[in-house]
Structures are given as C-alpha cells and as structure tokens.
Nucleic acid binder design. Sequence first.
DNA 1: TTTATTTACGAAACCGTTTTCGCAATTAAT
DNA 2: ATTAATTGCGAAAACGGTTTCGTAAATAAA
Lengths: 336, 336
Amino acid sequence: MKNINIKELALELNLSVSTISKALNDSYEISEETKRRVLETAARLNYVPNPYASSLRGRKSKNIGVVIPEVADSFFSLAINGIESVAKEKGYHVLICLTHESFENERTILKEFQGGRVDGVLLSVSRETTQCNHINDLIANGLPLVFFDRACDAVETAKITTDDFESGYKATAHLIAQSCNQIAFLSISNYLSISNKRLEGYLQALNDHKIEVNPKHIIQCTNDAEQNYLLIKKLLQQKNRPNGIVASVEKLTTPIYIACEALKLKVPQDIKVICFSNLETAAILNPSLTTITQPAFEMGKVAATLLFKALENRNFSLIKEDFMIPSTLVVRRSTG
Amino acid sequence: MKNINIKELALELNLSVSTISKALNDSYEISEETKRRVLETAARLNYVPNPYASSLRGRKSKNIGVVIPEVADSFFSLAINGIESVAKEKGYHVLICLTHESFENERTILKEFQGGRVDGVLLSVSRETTQCNHINDLIANGLPLVFFDRACDAVETAKITTDDFESGYKATAHLIAQSCNQIAFLSISNYLSISNKRLEGYLQALNDHKIEVNPKHIIQCTNDAEQNYLLIKKLLQQKNRPNGIVASVEKLTTPIYIACEALKLKVPQDIKVICFSNLETAAILNPSLTTITQPAFEMGKVAATLLFKALENRNFSLIKEDFMIPSTLVVRRSTG
DNA sequence: TTTATTTACGAAACCGTTTTCGCAATTAAT
DNA sequence: ATTAATTGCGAAAACGGTTTCGTAAATAAA
C-alpha cells in the first residue's frame, strides 16, 4: 500500500510521465479524454503528489511561515485563524514557528527559511529582538515578509499593527476618568515597539492630565509567570501604591488578579485594572475585566492578504504598505 | 544575495558536489582539513541547505504533522508546546494543521500527508469523525500515527489519553457531594470517545448515588458559540432546572457563565459548575471555576516521544502502546 | 494536392541534495 | 619489493515531480 508516484501511474496507463503530469495539472496540451483517464486512474490508485518534488522543481514551496512568540495566547491563536483562512483560500500551507520570546530561536528560524522552506513570512518579533539584521538578511534574500503586531522600525516592509499609542492613551485616560491618580504601567520589553508605543500613550495621557509620572510605577515584566507575580506584588506593596494598572499584555492578567487577592486589594474599589487582552473569559472574570481588545483575526487576515499580494505579483512593493487597525476599549467592572 | 547551493559552494572551493555534501554531513570519508574549509566557506557565504531537496532524496521530511481541531484552546496550545519541546530536541519540525472540527478537513489533511509531507502524525480527531478509514489508510501507507486526547477505537495504534471515564465520574461525584441532585452534562459530540467516556463516568456516578438520569439534562452542544449559549440557556429554563453542570469541554465555560448571569442564577448558590478546562484564568473567574485539568503539555510530550520511538525504530510497534495520564480535579468556588 | 497549422503526446533536462561506487594515492602488511 | 588495505575524493545515479522542446499525426489553408 505504499504511495504511488507518477511513474507508476504512467506505466499503468501506458502513457509517458510528462503526459501524466500535464494531465494532472490540466494542461491544454492534453486531450480531454486522456485527462479523464488519468484523473480516474489517479483517484483509483489513490495517487497523492509528493510536495517536495514539486517544490524542488518549481522553486516554490506553497508554504508561508508564521513566526510568533507563543501559541498559548489569545491574540496569536486568533491571528493564526485569520492567517489560515486566507492561506487556505490561496492553496497555501501555514508553517507555524514559535520563538518562545527568544531572539536566538527567532534568528535560527528565519535563517532556515532562507533554504526555501517557505515562500513568504509573517512575523511578530520576540521580546528580546533589538536588532534586525536577521530580518533584513531574509528580505535581501528575496523573501517577502510582513510584520503583524510586533514590528521592527528598522526594517522596511509592510507592518500590520494596531493603534498602540492611542490605545495606551485611551486605557490610561479611562483610568484617570475613573479617578485613578497613581497609575502603574506593566511592560514586557524595552525593545518591543508595541510595548513602547503603549507606554508613550500612557505617558502622554498622564501628561495631558497633569499627573506626575512615577518611575517606580513603570515596571518591566519578564517571560516567567512566577517572577511576574512577585514583581507585581512588590509594585502593589510600595508606599505610594498604585490605584490603577495598565497591563500591556494579556498574560499579566492572572498574576495581577492573584496578587490583588493575596494583598486583599479589592478590584475596582482599591485598584482599577485594564489589560491589553483578547481573552474570551474577560467578561466572566472576577471582576469582569476592562480590556483593550485587538483585532487579532483581522490583523492576521490583512497581513496574510498583503503577503499574498507580494507573492502573486513580484513587483508589488511591500514598502510603505502599512496598515493600522484600531483596537477597541471594552469597559467592564474592573475599572468601574 | 540569492541563497547559494552546494554546486556553487563546490565551485568556490574547487571540490566536487559530493565532497561538499559529505563534508557538511560530517562524513568519515572526508579529511578534517577539508571539512574545516567547507564549513568555513559555507558559513561565510551564508549557505542554507534546501530542505526539499534533502527530503526528496532521503524520502523523509524531518517533519511531523500535528492535526488538531483548534489552536485557540488551552488544551491544544499547551499540548503543542509539549510536542514541540520533543520535536525540537530531535531536530524535527512541527506542521500544525487545523481541522476546525470538520471531518472533511481532517480527511483532506491526512490524505495530503500520504504524499510524504510528514514522517509521522499526531492526531486528535474532529468532533464529526465517526469512521476512520482515512486514518487506517494513512497507517497502511506506512505512516506512524499516535492519537492524543481524542482517539478512535477503530484504529489500532498508540493512544495517549487521560482518564476520561474517571474524570467524568469524579466531576459528577464532586457535584453530588456538594448536594447537587439535578446534574446536567454538556457534551460536544456523540462520536468522540472522550465525550462519551466522560458521559459514561457521569452516568455511572449518578447511578452509584441512586440519582435518576434525566435525558433532558444531557445536551449535545455544537461548534457554534452563539448556538451553544442558546442551548445552555434553554437547559437552564427547563422546569426541572439543573442545579449542577458538568461541561465536558473548555469552550463552554463562557456561555455557561453568561447564561447564568442572564438568568440571574447565582453560581454556586443556585447552580454549581465544573468544567473540563485548562484555562489559566479558571482561578480568577467569577466565581473561580472548579475544573478537571488535563495534563496537556505532558500528553503532547508523551505522544511525541512515542511517535519518535516509532520513527527511529521501524520495527517498534505502536499497537498496544497506550498511555493514560490522569487529570486532576481542582476544586474552586464554582462548586463551593 | 501541397503546405501550414494545430493537436496530443514523449524524451530528456532540471530542481538541490544524498549516496553508491569507482579509483587514484598513500600507508600498512607480507 | 610486492601486495593489501586504507584514505580522500569525484562521477553519476537517484528522489518525484515540471517544463522545454521535438515530432508524428490529424486537420486546415493554399
């Protein structure tokens, strides 16, 4: 029951290998009658083409690479769905590669892509990524690449982002409107543009409302859940404890809630919380969580669509093809 | 800056193509000096091998396929991490394919695998999968396949599962111990073994405690969130409304909570809820959710390890290589 | 009727590796 | 000094498709 190949099909039908191939690809050179026979026999013998042979000869893989930090994250898993929906339509496969927020992993993955494994790349950089030679190398190599969510300014290609600055601003302004005056900001990386833009929005909002910035209220979280918990706890035990928190990333939600509970701080009475998050469970948390919700599916879809434009039209330039899709503030009880 | 290939490397070094290939693969036939030169030049010219050429020639892809219903699900995203951790160690890549719970998609994906795209498969079947010819075909084709979580009894190969019957029993017994006497069971599929085993555990627990089974309290959910919400709401509006719910799958959590809220049913006072779930946010829900938590990462890891055993040792049989890794009941306030 | 064109197919090269086999040159054994 | 074994490398055949080019037969145009 080994898989059959074109040569065996040719033998079976008393036709040449090239005729079979052309028939399978619906070439105009082949008569309808022969096509019918070939298709019928291929189906009967359960022929499945070897994708690597086609890729090798055709110098295209019909794969796109999606490089993301984590898959256990609502934003990324929803984005994958968006990406996949358009890839499927185009007859492409999606190769999901995880960096686990490690720069070294990211570089290794992109380097491998140079070998031709994928025809194009969608990338959301790791929290450690500070320089972009590995990305520029890949692009110089001829691979179209589109950033989504986490981009690198130093790379000239399309970037699908959300309005991070405005969202940071909106989140902070919302807390201020709810009469918070000591607002903490939880970042995940000094390097990540999204993190920095959200931070800038936060700073601008404080400034616009004449609230002094307290550097001790701006903390860098890590990639370790336990450590983040301790950092947050420490933050909430400062003498000038914050009465509002803007968390720039979803995975900080649980440690924040747990820390508040441990310290007997009532949300939202003692402290109000808003997170950048796509958690489906935001609405049923205790208390329900006010979020900045990103258009994850949409961003994946737009990024993929743009990438395919570049794949289908080699002289379509991805430079200056940026899209910014706004996030939405969903007010719930954690800031009530 | 196009990617270089072995032929160009050979030209550069005045060596033959075969020598380069052997040097890169650290063959004993090549002198240390030559190897050094080849490696150095390969690095300098940024050579990256074409994986498709190797795959074609070697008749192995160094890929494993992971076929799952969804990626936006804690269990599966954690399982992916487990799988990936061992694949990486073995130098393999993971091709994640989503069925979106569609049998047709599942069949198409497995069929494609016959072409040689992957060397082995980890599968968690869709909720629609009732017959397994497509799976048996693939195995007959020589591809090792290991089930994880959602298996098919009709296929003779390794299955990594959790103690679904016992978990269903434990969950139900826990509700009974908390004095529920009208317990509903939310299933996602009549076909899925996990769903059925959990249901059997539920039935057994009811029986052991002399509680009559109410068929109206056993409902089949769908793949549509909105529809599930309506089904649950209807369930909770029956005259003999349940005072306990066992949900056999994570994604039902939100609709259950929302429905209870809409109907002004207090959890756990009016109704107690327990879900099969790996949600990180279970602890901070309102109220915190009692769960049956599956060893997702571990299951992925064990499944992958077993698959690699079969890949590395062609006469290792996967038949009768089943593993059952127990889930744990985590009691929280939703059943308090 | 002769020439031109179209139709339908086959032979062979090619994609980039790996691997088998052959063969010199060197080293070891007799 | 002769034979045997070893070392280090190259030529060429795969792997399974696609594509270019050539060509015989059938059809159309002259």
